[in-house]
Every structure is written in C-alpha cells, then in structure tokens.
C-alpha cells in the first residue's frame, strides 16, 4: 500500500469538522434554559402567525349575553367586558407583535443601523461625524418620551397621507386595515432601534477595516461595496445577532406601551397593549380588574412577560456562544 493512499485513509478517518454555525447551534442547544426559551418563543410566534386558523371566534365579535365570563369550553380564556373572546384576541395581539417586531428590526436596526454603521466605521471622517452627532441628539431623549411624542405627532400626518393615497388611487381600506398603525409605530420606534446597532457595527468595523485580509482585498482592487458587504459584514454578524435578540423584547414592550396609551394599534384591531389599556381603563382600574377578573389582565400580560424574559435568556446564551471572548 503506498503512503499516499494511507494518508488518504487517515484523513477520511478524522472526525468531519462541522461548520461554524453548526458548532454554534450545538453549543446553544446544550444550554437547557435558553433552548426551552427559544422553543417557547417559537411557539408563541407560531400562535400569532396562525391566528386566523386557530382563532375560535372573530376578534371583533361581541356577545352581550356572555360578558366577563371566566374560562370555559366555549371561551378558553374567558370573555371581556364586551363579550369578546380573550383567547382569540390574544393570538391576534401576538400577530400584531410579530409584525411590528419584524418590520421594525428589518427597517430600523438591520437596514438603517447596519449600513450606517458600515459607512461610518469604514469611511470615518465627516460621514462618521455627522452620523454620530445625529445619533447623539436622538439618544439625548428619554426613550419612552420620544417614542410617545413621535407617535402622537406623526399619526395624523401619516393617516392624512394614507387617505390621500386612497383617494388618488381608488384603493380603499388602507387606513382601516391597520397598515397605517404599523407604519406609525415603526417610525416612532426608529430612534430606539437604529443608533445602538449603528454604534455596535461601527465599533467592529473600525477594528476590521485595518485587518490584514481587508487590506489584502483592497490591494487586489476589490470594490468598496464588495469589501463592505462580502468581507467585513460577515464578520460582524455575531454581535448583530446578539444585539437583535436583546432588542426584540424592548421593541415588543414599546409597542405594548404605545398601544396602552392609545397611540399605537387602534381598535378594533387587537394588540396586547390595546387589551391591557382597555381592560384597566388606561391604568385607573388596574386593581379592581386584577381582583375581580384576573384572567382579562393576565392573559395578555403573561405573553408579554414570557416574550421579554425568554428573549433575554436567549440573548444571554447567544452572547456566550457567539462571543466567547466576552466571557
């Protein structure tokens, strides 16, 4: 047997190396609490996505003969003051959360935050200075106050705009479909989402732009967009994932707070925040509701609670798994 074939044989007997992401997944799965949290999050989000299929009633349907009922076979989580089915409204509320979280993260944090961070870190100079100063102004405000102000002032402007689009195109139902609410909330949450992500990416890029492999790519005449998106971006993905997983809970909670104040999703479209706001009469009746009809308050709150808790646990675990140096 020649030495070459023996070498081949030896190589084939070595354990196959797994890819980076499979390693990450294997390490993540070993964290029991984080793994359970991820399953719970997936389950909750699936409830929201399949809301039209798994609903037992219509979310608007009122039944004045069955108001404020406790849980029963007909209404799994009971009914609210107007006799609407709480289970149905909760799953639709989750759908609202899913839509808002996904759209806010794709537009604000991932699109705006990541590209601005790449540009600021790579080009430095005045681009960096301008982006950073804008960010400083935006982050000078207490989050919730800014979000409330934006939502309150922008809503009429955006609703007006949507109406004019409806009139000129002959399309109808744009305002009533709730899309406008999502746009309002998305824009109001922008200041919360983009700056943190931008600063994170910028910091990473500042280090990577002088890395040898980037210098090599530049020396070979690689175009700037290619360097940014093919060479630098893949190396920033890990911190981005960690940051997103920590941020999702905060965004979900902000939507709940906005809708609670009546500035977010508008009835009849259900949202967890709208449900909490309606049932407690915007805070005033919290105590009596918790005493007399706890399920009406607890149903939406437990979902919010679980989402925030689970995302934090998952974020922690991802941080350990993806950035081993930070431990």
């Amino acid at each position: 047997m020649s030495s070459v074939t023996r070498l081949d044989q030896e190589i084939s007997e070595l354990p196959r190396s797994r890819g980076h992401w499979r390693n990450v997944w294997a390490r993540f799965r070993r964290r029991r609490l984080a793994f359970i949290s991820l399953i719970l999050i997936t389950f909750i989000y699936l409830l929201g996505i399949f809301a039209p299929v798994i609903q037992t009633h219509d979310y608007q349907e009122t039944n004045l003969r069955r108001t404020q009922q406790g849980p029963s076979a007909e209404n799994w989580l009971g009914t609210d003051r107007a006799g609407r089915d709480i289970y149905t409204r909760v799953v639709w509320g989750i759908q609202t959360t899913v839509i808002i979280t996904v759209s806010t993260f794709i537009t604000g944090s991932l699109f705006l935050g990541v590209t601005m961070g790449l540009f600021a870190g790579y080009f430095r100079g005045w681009i960096d200075a301008v982006i950073m100063r804008i960010g400083e102004v935006v982050s000078a405000f207490p989050d919730i106050l800014l979000i409330i102000l934006l939502a309150a002032t922008l809503r009429p402007v955006i609703v007006e705009f949507a109406r004019s689009v409806e009139d000129s195109t002959g399309m109808s139902g744009l305002v009533s479909s709730g899309v406008v609410d999502y746009v309002v909330i998305g824009i109001a949450l922008l200041p919360l989402s983009w700056f943190g992500m931008m600063r994170l990416v910028r910091g990473q890029v500042l280090v990577l732009r002088d890395a040898e492999y980037v210098q090599a790519a530049r020396a070979m005449g690689t175009s700037t967009p290619r360097i940014l998106f093919r060479h630098i971006l893949p190396n920033v993905v890990s911190p981005i994932i960690v940051s997103v997983s920590f941020g999702i809970g905060a965004v979900a909670l902000s939507e709940v707070v906005l809708s609670f104040f009546g500035l977010g999703v508008q009835p009849p479209r259900p949202s967890l925040g709208v449900m909490i706001g309606e049932v407690t009469a915007r805070g005033g009746a919290s105590v009596s509701v918790l005493r007399d009809h706890p399920e009406q308050l607890l149903a939406p709150i437990i979902v919010v609670w679980l989402l925030i808790f689970c995302w934090n646990i998952v974020g922690d675990a991802l941080n350990d798994v993806l950035n081993p140096r930070s431990r």
């Binding site: 919290s286 509701v289 005493r291 308050l297 919010v304 609670w305 925030i308 808790f309 934090n312 646990i313």
Partner: peptide, 18 residues
Amino acid sequence: MLILYAMPVFFTAPLLIL
C-alpha cells in the same frame, strides 16, 4: 432577577397594591 425584570408594571403595580 430576570423574571422580576421582565414582569410588566401593568401587572406588578396592581399586584403590590392588592
């Protein structure tokens, strides 16, 4: 502590009062 952190004030406030 994380459980307490994630608990929405909409719930903790009336619970404490009660």
